[in-house]
Design a binder for these strands. Structure first.
Lengths: 220, 220
DNA sequence: CGCTGGTTTGAAGGTCGTCAAGAAGGGTGG
DNA sequence: CCACCCTTCTTGACGACCTTCAAACCAGCG
């Protein structure tokens, strides 16, 4: 029996038409799964382990810690996203990765991924396309933090999340589940938690966004 | 007669031992060169052209413009760096690219690059390694802008530039040529030009860094 | 019921941006 | 060779945005 459809397969399907054999290949690669708890670290900056993770469900974040205790979140992967492809290419983790809620992830050994990149030209281009999209998002975040004020930056962030979650069926145009607290959001936006709170209030007062009992609703 | 050694070949040489055939292949790929002048745009965000550029000499920047007239510089490529590999994978430019001084660049057609990625496994891994390093730098810059104050951010930037330029033989440990003005630096650091000036003064007063007649000297 | 983690709000202060104007090159033309 | 102009650098004053500190509030939970 073939593997069930995964978020990764759905995502790659938007880039090319996968054959059944390719779907099976991708399904098989994701077959080693684990459940993780909030706060659990799967990867720490500097690690030499060679694993690629594929988020299946739940929320997680890749980030870097700073010597002064600060923290910058690089990305919130969405189900179907790969984490650590870059680490495999660099042979060293340049960021950490941890779960923020209960989550399930697949883990793929580096050699397995490298073999795939060597032997499966079509899947290779799908992975590279996906990596390029992720990088593009990081660049957009760089622009946001570098040149947009707190309100624009926050609004932009939620719009981006809405789009990404919609693609994997986890959001409608106006609404999605947001289980993360304001401190986490602050670490992602390069702001203090308190200022995030004030910004959220302003957006709420302008009827642009509401966070309702851990349920994020974006209205623009 | 084989092609002369290029910055790209030197860089890839740090990752794997290139055969003569591979060096020739890389030399040939870079054979279409052009001279560009300060301010000349080679790529504009949204473009569908499919070219990869390899900087041979001079200074350039990839950046994004904002509707309000602002600008965020993503990267200053160093000779040997590739620009636009991501654009090829995405089939659309997600950033602009222009020269900042007189410079020479090679340009490689997208199909040519894709062919290389398909047919040359060793060069493919070299290109992917290089792309991973570039992305890693963007991430580091995200952390810098998100979580470091102006002084740390600026110092960090010059240290990174020193390292990168040293690798291609354009800097000693303590010194390199810096032909760019403070406005450009500000757009890279997410600061105003005036504040960059103040920060540079502070660093100068602490004997950490001196900009002397367009000649950047970093001392820590 | 008290604890805990998160949210909310106020007040004060610091970093950084904006405005304005002067100083210091570098290039050009007389 | 000097006068002029243009760009860039530099400095000061002021204000805005954002952070920090502090405390109240709220909900879930032992």
């Amino acid at each position: 029996m073939p593997f069930p459809e995964s978020a990764l397969i759905r995502k790659f399907g938007a880039f090319l038409d996968l054959t059944c054999a390719e779907k099976d290949y991708l399904g098989e690669i994701q077959s080693r799964r684990m459940r993780v708890k909030p706060g659990q670290e799967l990867l720490q900056e500097g690690d030499k382990d060679q694993n690629v993770f594929i988020l299946q469900s739940g929320w997680a974040n890749s980030y870097k810690d700073l010597p002064d205790g600060g923290r910058q979140i690089i990305n919130f992967p969405v189900p179907g996203d790969c984490i650590g492809l870059r680490n495999v290419l660099l042979r060293k983790a340049d960021h950490s990765f941890s779960a923020l809620t209960n989550a399930t992830v697949s883990f793929v050994n580096a050699s397995r991924i490298l073999q795939l990149l060597d032997e499966q030209p079509r899947l290779r281009s799908a992975f590279l396309w996906s990596a390029a999209r992720d990088e593009s998002m990081v660049v957009e975040r760089l622009v946001s933090i570098g040149r947009r004020d707190a309100i624009q930056r926050t609004a932009h962030f939620f719009i981006e999340m809405t789009e990404r979650l919609t693609l994997v069926g986890l959001a409608t145009d106006t609404q999605f589940h947001w289980p993360l607290n304001q401190g986490v959001l602050a670490d992602a936006l390069g702001l203090s938690a308190i200022h995030v709170n004030r910004v959220l209030r302003q957006l709420r007062e302008q009827n642009l966004l509401t966070l309702r009992s851990n349920n994020g609703i974006v209205e623009t």
